[in-house]
Amino acid sequence: MLLDGAQAVQHGPVDVAALGADFYAFSGHKAFGPTGVGVLWGKAEALAALPPFHGGGGMIGRVGVEQTTYALPPRRFEAGTPPIAQAIGLGAALDWLCEQPWAAMNAHTARLAQRLIDGLAVLPGLTFIGPRETAQRLPIVAFDLAGIHPHDACQVLDAHGVAVRGGHHCAQPLMEFFKLQGAVRASIAPYNDEADIDALLAGLKDAIGRLR
């Protein structure tokens, strides 16, 4: 089992052993690091069972005419010249994350998430995806606005200086399950504040007024 931790890892320590997954992956840019780099953690026996997916320097054990062997993980999966600058950048970002006061940071983002959820709840035709209680969710709030396509909502929000993700999130089966074309997803980070939440809510009211 592979668990996608891209939306979770930046919100607190992850005990990969307790999760019970064979693999845990996340992308660097979702953890305040550079693009083009990420992390795959795997149980040693699960990684050892995987063949290389890419050939290149540094991933071989010994190359022979009759037989080629491969390096042990993780080198087996790191063929060729690695993205050195990106890896160093991601390391710095993760070091920074690990030094943060998680409790205070998460209390701040949970407070902002609650402000957002409370503001969204009074908008007409809004459907939440997931629970409304911040204790039961990370500060990532996805929702649908009836009659307004997520990309149009995002475009209007962009004009308000608010960047959110909109669309099917590459999860079309999930959208079909919810009977939605897509969703708008607001991800709250420690650098956000109340003014950001209020700008998002004002932008949505503008979108409703203009597009519905």
Partner: peptide, 12 residues
């Protein structure tokens, strides 16, 4: 500009 993107004629 975004403001022009959703002009009334387009919505209509």
């Amino acid at each position: 500009m975004n403001d022009d993107l959703y002009q009334k004629a387009l919505l209509d």
